[in-house]
Amino acid sequence: MTIGPTVAGGLKLVPEAEKDWIVLLEIANDGEGKLSKRLAKLMDEDSMWDEIVVPELEQEFSKQRLAVMREVVKAKEDKSDIHIVKKSAEIWYGALNQARLGLEERYKFGPREFTEASKIEDPVARAAYYRSDFYCTVQSLLLQYVMKD
C-alpha cells in the first residue's frame, strides 16, 4: 500500500493488493470493544458515568468505525483509492485510535519503543502488532499533513 499527502491537504491511501484491503477492513473490527466502558471505570460511581456518558460515547465511537468501514468498502467496490480529506480526518484518526486501543487491550503490546515484533511468538498477536503499527503510521501522517492547524 502506498500512502501520501495530497496537494489538497488530505491523505491518499492506495491499496495495491488484497491484503491491503483486508488490513483496512480490519480497522473497524479491531476497534470493536468496550472502550467507553473501560474509560468509565476510571470514574467513581457517583458520577453515573455508565448511565449517562457511556451510551453517548459508544454511539460516537461506533459512528467513527462505521464511517471508515463504509469508506473502505465503497473504495474496494469502486476499485479506487481512499482519500482522507480534512473534514473526515478526525473520524479516521478516532477509528484508527480505537483499533489500536482495542489491540492493546487484547494483546498488551506496551509502548512501541519497547516492543519488538520479531519477539512476539504468537503469529496472530504478531499480525495484530503489525496492524497496530500500520494504524499508528497512518495516524502520524494524519497529524502531520491533514490535522495540522
Binding site: L42, Y93, N97, R100, L101, E104, F109, G110, P111, R112, C136, Q139, S140, L143, M147
Partner: peptide, 14 residues
C-alpha cells in the same frame, strides 16, 4: 490525564 501506551504525544498535546 493518565498515561497509556497508545495515544500519540502530539495528539495528547493537541
Amino acid at each position: 490525564v493518565l498515561d497509556d501506551p497508545v495515544n500519540l504525544m502530539e495528539y495528547v498535546s493537541r
